[in-house]
């Protein structure tokens, strides 16, 4: 589904990603872990096309398409979703309008007719229940006045609405208390199908207690330096990142 080859990316001339290789197949959950500043969020930004970053080398293929050739909104409509680490507020734009615009843009992209009002409302209701989202939040403007936890939950709600093929969760666990974490993780698990894939970016193994990864990768200084199964995450939790750094530098 996703094939990243020798990906190099920089910001303001400073190279952050230094040759990433990663393959994600349908049905898989990949966890990407690593210390601060290792390039985890950069990777998610580059996959989704954030114009802030410049890709200097390498390729990203998504279901046979060259993602780097596509605008951010086209990548989204191809089925790539990012749950933001810091979701922005859009004052005055209601969640209802925002979601309807997003869904209809995707339908337009796929040459499907716009969603009917009744279908849309039914979908909203269904997905709200799935992620235990309070109607008070969906009646407000996008993220406006939401708490940190509410914003993260709202990201998962949007993911549920848009049903992406590939979801990237960028530190979705940060700032969540244990109850919110469980709700968010449950939402992700319920949305899991054999046809879609998830990349979970996280500092801690905590989230991985709820979302079980098939693969764990350690990102360090712009490279994936170690890959393994979920046991690797437990080892990182127990031993920290220093031994990885020593291994790499040795």
């Amino acid at each position: 589904m996703l094939v990243i080859k020798n990906l190099h990316a920089s910001i303001n001339g400073k190279e952050i990603l230094k040759g990433i290789n990663l393959t994600v197949n349908p049905g898989e959950i990949h966890a990407i872990m690593g210390p601060n500043g290792s390039g985890k969020s950069t990777l998610s930004s580059v996959i989704t096309g954030n114009p802030f970053f410049e890709v200097t080398q390498g390729s990203i293929e998504f279901n046979g398409k060259d993602l780097l050739e596509l605008a951010p909104e086209e990548r989204a409509n191809e089925g790539v979703f990012l749950s933001f680490q810091y979701p922005v507020e859009i004052p005055g734009v209601s969640m209802v309008n925002f979601m309807r615009a997003a869904i209809n843009e995707k339908r337009k992209y796929l040459n499907e007719p716009a969603i009917s009002a009744s279908d849309f409302l039914r979908l909203m209701r269904e997905k709200k229940e799935l992620v235990e989202m309070d109607s008070k939040l969906t009646n407000r403007a996008v993220n406006e006045g939401f708490s940190g936890g509410e914003k993260k939950k709202n990201e998962i709600f949007q993911m549920a609405m848009l049903e992406p093929k590939l979801a990237i969760l960028d530190e979705t666990d940060s700032g969540l208390d244990i109850d919110a974490l469980r709700i968010v993780a449950n939402g992700v698990n319920k949305l899991k199908t054999p046809d879609n894939a998830t990349i979970v970016i996280t500092h801690y193994q905590r989230l991985l207690d709820y979302i079980t990864p098939d693969f764990v990768h350690v990102l360090y200084d712009g490279n994936i330096v170690k890959s393994g199964t979920k046991e690797l995450a437990l080892e990182l939790e127990a031993r920290g990142y220093d031994w990885i750094k020593q291994e790499v530098e040795a």
Partner: peptide, 15 residues
């Protein structure tokens, strides 16, 4: 902000 625009883009909404 660029962040707001990218957020919308990421949800499939053009600039």
């Amino acid at each position: 902000s660029e962040d707001q625009l990218f957020y919308c883009n990421q949800r499939g909404i053009g600039t």
